[in-house]
Amino acid sequence: MGLIWEGIKEALRLLFTLDPEVLKITLLSLKVSVLATLVSLFLGIGAGLLIALNRFPGKHLIISLVNTGMGLPPVVVGLFVTIMLWRNGPLGFFEILYTPTAIVIAQAIIATPIIAGISVAALQQLPPNLRLQILSLGATRRQLVWLLVQEARLPLLAAVMAGFGGVISEVGASIMVGGNIKGYSRVLTTATVMETSKGNFDVAIALSLILLLLAFSVNAVLTYLQQRKRPR
């Protein structure tokens, strides 16, 4: 228990003294995970719309695959992205292994199925007649999609939160493709692993608390967007 108290004190000290290294790590975590979530947002909701609004053979299979992807283990993603990005690997010419960009890519792969899966469910759950109604009022396809997205806004924002929660907290892929390089690709989760292995438990607890605080702040903003009154 004493250790946790020490950790809390250390977290407050690091936060209030604006420790430059911790600040850098925190900002990078935020930057990487927000970017990854934004990428997955477009890909995930796009895929969700395609799947939910179209009828095609094998649709159930595709949905099962997406739903399985929601539980994609980060280390598996990390391993495959590493092998692809090795400089002698198939995508080696990009030279982005052990960079924050590589972390964004791995995290986007982790978050996209999460957002797509929840989007499919959210869109399928809309009343089927709503589509016909919108179309009969003369909406273009684009307007239809926009209106449906607005209608499913609550669960779609939940999808974004789930995606963000999945990537800000993952460590397996970040450490493999980012390399935990000091001042460059070290994020809160990988720094926590490292400090734990060094036996600096107070710093590790402090970093964990900062991570929780960060996740809470982002989710608070998203929840505000989700819960505020809809303009009529």
């Binding site: 930057k31 990487v32 970017l35 982005i96 960079t99 960009t101 964004v104």
Partner: peptide, 13 residues
């Protein structure tokens, strides 16, 4: 902002 950050992330290499 997303594009700007992506740019800065990419240029660091």
């Amino acid at each position: 902002t997303a594009m700007a950050t992506l740019g800065s992330v990419l240029s660091a290499q």
